[in-house]
Amino acid sequence: MPMRDQTDPGTTEPIPSRLLLGYARVSTDDQDLTNQRAELHAVGCTKIFSEKITGTRRDRPELARMLDHLRPGDIVTVTRLDRLARSTRDLLDIAEHIQSGGAGLRSLAEPWADTTTPAGRMVMTVFAGIAEFERSLIVERTRSGRVAAKARGVKFGPRPTLTHVQVKHARQLIDQGDHTVSEVAKLLGVHRTTLYRAIAR
């Protein structure tokens, strides 16, 4: 007869133990991961994912492996938050991914960033609100700037591929009848349609 797990007398199946997963990162190959790994080992991390890659990149293989490895109840631990993310938005996205999997996040250098506690979750919620507020301000400033620029006569959209001088020269070549539109377009290094649009303006 199977033994009951002592931590849960209501089940005959053992409950998977919580894992402390560490993540360590440095930006360049000549930097050392030893200190970060030692700190993470010291607090009980049983598995540490480490890599040498800039934090501005989202395609970090070891970070992806760690997130895939997460199970409910696990806790991701970093020595500092800037080892995990280089922007508030990036941090919140990663923290949300961790939380959606039923896991937690904590930083040794920033004890307030501990989503396993109510206070830590509240702080991250405030951060999310601030990030959304900042994003809204940027959108509003951009919109207001475009409106003001249009009022001054500024035109938006892609810049013309051909300069005014090139278009004038192209018209002359075509009007002389010595060259076709296709030949002139090839001479200028643009598609025939692009040249048609330019000389039609």
Rank of each mutant, 00 (worst) to 15 (best):
M1C: 07
P2C: 05
D8K: 08
T12Y: 09
E13C: 07
P14T: 12
I15G: 00
P16C: 11
S17M: 08
G22Y: 06
R25N: 06
R25C: 02
V26E: 05
V26C: 03
V26N: 07
T28M: 11
T28G: 04
D32Q: 05
T34P: 05
N35I: 07
Q36D: 01
R37F: 00
H41Q: 14
H41I: 12
V43E: 08
I48F: 01
I48M: 03
E51Y: 12
E51Q: 15
K52T: 04
I53C: 06
T56E: 15
R60T: 03
E62A: 13
R65D: 07
M66E: 03
M66D: 13
M66P: 03
L67F: 03
H69F: 09
L70W: 12
L70S: 04
R71S: 15
P72D: 03
P72T: 02
I75P: 00
T77Y: 09
D82F: 06
R83L: 04
L84V: 14
R86S: 10
S87Y: 05
D90M: 11
L91D: 08
L91I: 08
I94V: 15
I98N: 13
Q99E: 15
S100D: 14
A103R: 11
G104C: 05
L105R: 15
L105T: 12
L108H: 05
W112V: 14
D114Q: 15
T115G: 01
P118M: 07
A119E: 14
R121I: 02
V126E: 06
A131N: 06
F133H: 14
E134N: 11
R135H: 11
R135Y: 11
E140R: 14
R141I: 06
R143D: 15
G145Y: 04
K150A: 11
P158R: 15
L162T: 02
V165Y: 01
K168F: 02
L173V: 04
Q176I: 01
G177T: 01
G177H: 00
T180K: 00
T180I: 05
V181W: 08
S182F: 03
A185H: 00
L187M: 12
V190M: 06
H191W: 11
T193S: 13
T193A: 12
T193P: 03
A198G: 12
